[in-house]
Structure formats: C-alpha cells, structure tokens
C-alpha cells in the first residue's frame, strides 16, 4: 500500500473509533450532570428504545440466508424455530445457539445429500 492508502486506513480507523467513543463521553457527562438518578433513568427515552431495536434490525439483516432459495429459507426457519424452542425451555444463551445452528446445518446438509 502506498502512503496515501495508509492514511485512508488510519483515517477510517480513527473515525470509526471516534464514532464509538465520543457518544460514550457525551453520555458519561450527562450521567454526571444528572447525578443521583439511576443510570437508566438518566438516559433519554429514545435511546433506551433504540438499543433493542438496533439489535432487532441486525437480527433482520442476519436472517437473510446466503442462498436465497427454498432450502435457504427452510433452513433459516428451522433454525429460528429450534433456537426459540430451546431458549423457551432453558432461558439461556449458549444451547439455543448451538441447537439453532445444528437445525440450520441439518437442513443444509440433508438438502445437499438429496440433490
């Protein structure tokens, strides 16, 4: 890489870090100003709502299968159902993920054997 490209990499890295870091400093100052309030109560309401909704949006993006055919969607639907089913029973994080990936993988592997 030439020096101009290195500068572009460093500018992107620094900019990305600042996008993640500066809002933390702003929120810390806000929390200090509202000293005495519980942390969550001191947050603007829109922010407490936006957090889970951003996770939901990232979930929506990641749900789209790599292969956009019936097998891909069937595998995704199976993975979702099994993940939710195991979560409902165990209320934990690790096993639902393992079970969901296994269900997704089982459909993909069976489909590859079939074709």
């Amino acid at each position: 890489m030439n020096s101009a490209l290195w500068i572009a990499v460093l500018a992107s890295a620094l900019g990305t870090l600042l996008l993640r870091l500066v809002p933390l400093l702003w929120m810390r100052r806000r929390l200090r100003k509202l000293d005495g309030e519980e942390g969550v109560d001191a947050m603007p309401q829109w922010l407490t709502i936006l957090g889970p909704l951003m996770i939901a949006a990232v979930l929506g993006v990641s749900l789209v299968p790599h292969r956009l055919d019936a097998i891909g969607w069937l595998a995704s639907a199976s993975g979702v159902l099994v993940t939710l089913g195991v979560w409902y029973r165990l209320r934990s994080l690790g096993w639902p993920v393992v079970a969901g990936v296994a269900a997704f993988g089982a459909v993909v592997i069976l489909a590859s054997l079939w074709s």
Binding site: I49, P52, L53, I55, A56, A57, V58, L59, G60, V61, S62, L63, V64, S76, G79, V80, T83, L84, W87, Y88, R91, S92, L93, P96, V97, G100, V101, F104
Partner: peptide
C-alpha cells in the same frame, strides 16, 4: 449470529407494544 441475536432479543418481547416494534424492525431490516 441470528441464533445469538434471537436468544438475546427473546426476553425483550415483554408486551404487545414491544413485540410489534421489534417485529417491525426485524421485518424492515430483512
């Protein structure tokens, strides 16, 4: 990744209001 996000989000479905908002976000992003 989606399995992890599902397990993280599932406890957020605490009311019809939250469930609707979360589903709208998921479907729109999809």
């Amino acid at each position: 990744l989606p399995a992890l996000f599902l397990a993280l989000l599932a406890p957020q479905f605490t009311s019809r209001r939250w469930s609707l908002a979360l589903m709208i976000s998921i479907i729109t992003a999809l």
